[in-house]
């Protein structure tokens, strides 16, 4: 194995630093973005709003998060039973 090249591969320490910077930017309060503790409430409120129009169970909601450098994404999936139970 010849790993030698003129362009050295990025050392693992710089990956560590990048990961920490992204994570800590999210964790420190006042940095903007969703605080983790608001998510259970967000989930309850979303369920509440949807229930005004459709019948869904407590387990029907699935929230995924991907925190990024520039932006984060919140993916919310709501499963309905067989056919839409519109009130």
């Amino acid at each position: 194995m010849f790993g030698f090249s003129l362009r050295p591969r990025k050392a693992s320490a710089s990956t560590a630093k990048e990961r920490l910077q992204i994570l800590l930017a999210h964790e420190r309060s006042g940095s903007g973005g969703a605080r983790p503790d608001c998510l259970p409430q967000l989930q309850r409120e979303i369920l509440e709003v949807i229930r005004r129009h459709m019948q869904i169970g407590d387990e029907a909601i699935d929230i995924r998060m991907e925190r990024g450098d520039e932006l984060s994404s919140l993916e919310i999936n709501i499963e309905f039973p067989g056919k839409l139970g519109v009130n």
Partner: peptide, 20 residues
């Protein structure tokens, strides 16, 4: 670390299902 939404304590306190 970038994918944590709910945690063990949320599940214990009934704020999220284990699966979530």
């Amino acid at each position: 670390e970038r994918r944590v939404v709910f945690d063990f304590i949320n599940v214990i306190q009934g704020d999220a299902k284990l699966k979530q």
